[in-house]
């Protein structure tokens, strides 16, 4: 995060550098693949091989191969990106690729999802997933303060009952469901 104290003084140099990184953001993917490759490769190489290795090829062979290939692919991909290659972003019915990415919506949606993970063991499934549904709908631009929570509550309780009673998969009811 760069703190811009005065927008007037912002040099064209940093702006250029910024846009260069934005143009080549796919290098982030290359870095991820490289890290993943190094991780898998070291895991493969450090596996203890002396005991219980049955057959000529031990458990380390495939991790070493996959790790090496990941490193190779990450370098090839980086070369491709620097030469101007671009991965084509995926389109879809509800996707408008002509607009810039809306990070606020993404973060709000991610927040709603993580709230569910944080709450589920404490507050129970019906409460936590209702919070998630409402939060996700809010993040995506729904602002009906009666209908949104109502749908969220009905969906969560119905799902909870269906999983517990019909499918026999217990979901935590939490203190709220303990009351009934």
């Amino acid at each position: 995060m760069s703190v811009e104290t005065s927008t007037v003084e912002e040099s064209t140099g940093t702006a250029e550098r910024k846009s260069w990184w934005r143009e080549h953001s796919e290098l982030g993917m290359c870095a991820f693949l490289l890290l993943l490759g190094v991780l898998v490769l070291t895991e493969g190489l450090t596996l203890p091989t002396d005991f219980t290795t049955r057959g000529p090829l031990g458990p380390q062979a495939v991790p070493v191969a996959v790790g090496s290939l990941l490193v190779l692919i990450s370098l090839l991909l980086a070369r491709d990106v620097l030469r101007g290659g671009r991965g084509e972003a995926e389109g879809g019915e509800d996707i408008d690729l002509s607009t810039a990415a809306d990070w606020r919506t993404v973060l709000l949606l991610a927040g709603a999802f993580l709230a569910n993970a944080a709450l589920i063991d404490v507050a129970g499934f019906p409460v936590s997933s209702a919070v998630m549904f409402w939060g996700a709908a809010y993040a995506l631009g729904s602002r009906n303060f009666v209908r949104d929570p109502l749908i969220a509550a009905v969906l969560s309780v119905v799902t909870w009952v269906a999983f517990n009673e019909l499918l026999g998969v217990p979901l935590p009811g939490g203190p709220l469901m303990g009351v009934f």
Partner: peptide
């Protein structure tokens, strides 16, 4: 879902 959120039409 996350991808649609970023580029919702």
């Amino acid at each position: 879902s996350l991808w649609v959120a970023a580029h919702l039409r």
